[in-house]
Design a protein around this nucleic acid. Structure first.
Lengths: 219, 219
DNA sequence: TGTACATCAGTGAACGCGCGTTCACTGATGTAC
DNA sequence: TGTACATCAGTGAACGCGCGTTCACTGATGTAC
């Protein structure tokens, strides 16, 4: 080590602990968002739930806003990786569009339910906050492209005249309804199936109906 | 008049002017919501744009929150009356489901574009504010019922196995996408048709596709 | 028709609360010799 | 291995700003006799 006084492998001191603290604060904020909106969550709340003091928040994040941005980044990263893995064409070799849609939509329903707090908050701000908006658009575009690869490889099942644009719009339809039903709705809302299973089933039917995909089974 | 000292037709003094002032304040608030969210609009802003002072707001409304509630009430009333008139079965005698959907959805796109400010704000709050949530649900349920009367009178055109629930869910799909595309999206968003005409067209296709209604013409 | 009074609509400076942000400090961890 | 010093992580009381809300006041409009 003493041989090269000017070169040294830099491994910032204690970085691990700091990183952990930041992560705990993000977890705390996300948990609090499940029950109230970000404006109603105070910095003191976030710190307290993480077992830390207010100052700790400011030593890890520039300000309250920056914390929310990091929360979105973390979420988007996770989503992107998940999409990459689960929509890999090899995993779906031999599957029909119906099977893909069934599973994808059931999964999306689940995710929206689990992380409704952050999602709701981020969606609400995305309109006013350009950075957040772009991050979300980027993610959606990414998912659209991955899904398109899968579905457009099975063109004979799609009757919509413009399959390329239809996949994208269809996915938007799905996201829109999930927002309506899960993020901004309550379980007993008029016209929304009462259980998540029923919701996923009906949403899948809508997606396939729009694309013009025939379903073998009927009910 | 002096004949009946205990009975008198009560017509509150100046009520007309007060009413006008309240209306002007509501207009002002709605106009300001077009560019920023309610939290960023100050009571002073609202008063100034209406050519009034801060105190005037508090002489017409209990507080800032109450003003927004009244704004929603006004909007809902207008919407309800509009729905009642335009979805009257007599007006659509002889029309097909395709024709009804075409016009309805084009109209909804227009309305969402015009009043995006208030709509966005109200939707955002509806999750946390029970009163607002109920008012919106009530309106949607009302529209669903009116539309159902129209569409279920033409059952031979619908292939969905449960037409009654399908109309409601289909309308939710439409509202969800309008939120996504117009209220929380920007014109060039990925997967969203760039013009309102194209958007309405594609949305109609989705609605009909879900219901299982055949369209005579194709493209 | 005039006078005196009551009520209503609206003003705007001043207040005060809540919450984000700062900062002087402590204790823990790492580094140099 | 011990000592002295530097840096990092975190504390929490105090600050201060912005904005909703109040309230003592003015002028206009309506009412009684």
């Amino acid at each position: 080590m003493t041989e090269h006084p000017h070169f040294r492998w830099v491994r910032p001191t204690q970085q691990a602990r700091s990183q952990q603290t930041a992560e705990r604060l993000l977890d705390s904020a996300e948990a609090l968002l499940a029950h109230k909106c970000f404006a109603d969550v105070t910095v003191a709340d976030i710190a307290a739930r993480a077992g830390l003091s207010v100052g700790a928040v400011y030593s890890r994040f520039r300000d309250k806003e920056a914390l929310l941005h990091r929360l979105q980044e973390r979420l988007v990263d996770e989503a992107q990786m998940t999409a990459e893995v689960t929509l890999d064409p090899e995993r779906w070799a031999g599957a029909s569009i119906v099977e893909i849609a069934d599973e994808l939509i059931a999964f999306l329903v689940e995710i929206h339910r689990e992380r409704s707090g952050v999602l709701r908050e981020i969606l609400g701000r995305a309109h006013a906050d350009a950075e957040m908006y772009e991050r979300r658009e980027h993610l959606i575009a990414h998912i659209c492209r991955l899904l398109s690869v899968l579905l457009l490889a099975r063109p004979e099942q799609i009757r919509h005249p413009h399959p390329e644009t239809a996949v994208d719009f269809g996915l938007r339809l799905v996201f829109g309804l999930l927002k309506e039903a899960i993020l901004f709705g309550t379980p007993r809302a008029y016209g929304i199936p009462p259980s998540d299973d029923a919701l996923a089933r009906e949403l899948t039917r809508a997606f396939l109906g729009y694309l013009g995909v025939e379903r073998a089974d009927a009910d």
